[in-house]
Design a protein around this nucleic acid. Structure first.
Length: 477
DNA sequence: ATGTTC
């Protein structure tokens, strides 16, 4: 695939064949030189052929191959003439990240780290098919799908301010539980408040370095501060919503009469019964994910208090922000100088709204929206802030994480004979996990260098570095 | 990512 540098941190796939717009990849020269993502680049070009796509099919430096659309991809479609596609969101609808800061410092946690990680692992169900964190009736589940994070707070599983510091207030109003299948409801019934598996985790970390004092102060972050970072999504419910939607979209797309370069790009006009049905079901799964992360934060608060023998006031575990990185949203963006109503697909990409945007919580509005970028479990995670340049160049979007370089299979092979948990322990990172091959599949070597990913988006100007976090304890599924 | 191939 031919890539033309159009600026020091942006490369273009020129328009050819059925492409309606070019492709655009945000990455440093160094990452471009090491790029071996031919299949993912082809997927960017494929997305560029879809009806109603605006400006360019975009990808972030953490891009890799995904279902139809690349992971690390951003695609915005005109609301009236464009399409919506489950492949542009991903199977784990509203997979996302939540960060809480505490009143504690590293010295308060080091002596109890072993007990803390053990207690977190006991109190939070992990792994494929994990259940049992909260008891839910079907009636309550429908409320979760409609209300999102606020439902959990109403149950006493969090604070009102948690919801205020969540993207979209932890709720997409377009949710319509009547379009969610019985099977999806069944899968969701017992999984609320569970972590899941794969790259999902809950991590106790420490603020390692501050890059932007003003933004860090606004976000309530200071050096040596203990943080909790958690990464999970909508579990089996979201997976089932995606699966159900792909089934009816595949049927529907045959009636559209458009030629798709890949059947995994199955889609519908946004303003069609099929498009609206997917959007309404997707929003339900998004709300479920926000309730899920809300409950996990509550479990973390309970566990810290139990292990440290302190009350909520001394713990002071307060939410910094919660973002989604697998979602489609209705947003207004300036396109060719005019405001346009668009449907932005972010799949393995994060919203990065600029200072002054009304969707950014008031306390953060002068510095921009917080962005949470988890690294692999052996290195670091980053807090960034949204920028005006992101509004202008990437539909208010940035990267989402390190991005895989090794397939799960390849990672397992490379880890043979190694004790990954010991390698991490040598770096001062305690890890507890449930899946037989989780640690091998998720080992640091399986991921790109998070520092390079973050330098790319910082260099491109689509977000700016605020702080780096270093892990101390990690639980995984 | 996923009751990891209803």
């Amino acid at each position: 695939m031919k890539l033309n540098p159009i600026s020091p941190f942006c490369y273009e796939i020129p328009r050819t064949g059925d492409m309606r717009v070019p492709g655009r990849i945000f990455m440093s020269r160094r990452m471009a030189a090491g790029l071996s993502e031919e299949e993912a680049l082809k997927q960017v070009a494929n997305v560029a052929t879809l009806p109603g796509i605006l400006t360019a099919a975009m990808a972030m430096p953490d891009m890799h191959w995904g279902y139809g659309f690349p992971i690390g991809g951003v695609a915005a479609f005109d609301w009236k003439t464009g399409v919506i596609s489950p492949g542009g969101v991903g199977y784990d609808i509203n997979c996302g990240v939540r960060l809480a800061a505490t009143g504690l410092e590293e010295k308060d946690i080091r002596p109890v780290a072993e007990r803390l990680v053990t207690a977190l692992f006991q109190n939070i169900p992990t792994g494929v098919g994990s259940t049992g964190s909260v008891k839910l009736s079907v009636k309550d589940e429908l409320k979760v799908l409609k209300q999102g994070g606020a439902w959990a707070v109403r149950q006493g599983l969090g604070d009102a301010v948690d919801v205020e510091r969540t993207e979209d207030g932890g709720c997409m109003a377009e949710a319509d539980p009547s379009v969610v299948s019985q099977r999806a409801l069944e899968r969701g019934l017992k999984q609320l408040g569970t972590l899941g598996s794969g790259n999902h985790f809950l991590e106790v970390g420490v603020v390692d370095e501050i890059f932007d004092e003003d933004a860090a102060r606004a976000f309530g972050l200071f050096e040596n501060q203990i943080t909790v970072l958690l990464h999970t999504g909508s579990r089996g419910l979201g997976y089932q919503v995606c699966d159900d939607s792909l089934a009816f979209m595949n049927k529907h797309v045959k009636t559209l009469g458009i030629r798709l370069p890949d059947r995994q790009l199955a889609c519908a006009m946004i303003r069609s019964p099929e498009g609206e049905r997917y959007f309404a079901a997707m929003a339900c799964a998004a709300n479920y994910a926000w309730a899920n992360r809300q409950i996990l934060l509550h479990r973390a608060r309970e566990t810290f208090q139990q292990v440290l023998g302190i009350g909520p006031r001394d713990l002071d575990m307060h939410q910094v922000y919660d973002i989604c990185h697998n979602i489609a949203k209705r947003e207004t963006h300036i396109v060719d100088g005019n405001p346009r109503d668009v449907c932005v697909h972010r799949k393995g990409a994060t919203r990065a709204f600029a200072p002054g945007h009304a969707a950014v919580p008031a306390a953060y509005r002068h510095v921009g929206q917080p962005i949470l970028i988890p690294g692999d479990m052996g290195t670091a995670s980053y807090v960034l802030a949204g920028t005006q340049k992101a509004m202008e160049e990437s539909f208010g979007s940035t990267c989402h994480g390190a991005g895989r370089v090794l397939s799960r299979k390849a990672a397992k092979k490379q880890s043979k004979g190694r004790a990954i948990h010991r390698e991490l322990a040598d770096k001062g990172i305690l890890v507890k996990w449930s899946g037989r091959s989780t640690l091998a599949e998720e080992m640091p070597d399986a991921y790109k260098d998070i520092d390079q990913v973050v330098e790319s988006v910082h260099g491109a100007g689509i977000s700016k570095k605020v702080a780096r976090l270093r892990p101390i304890c990690v639980i995984k599924g």
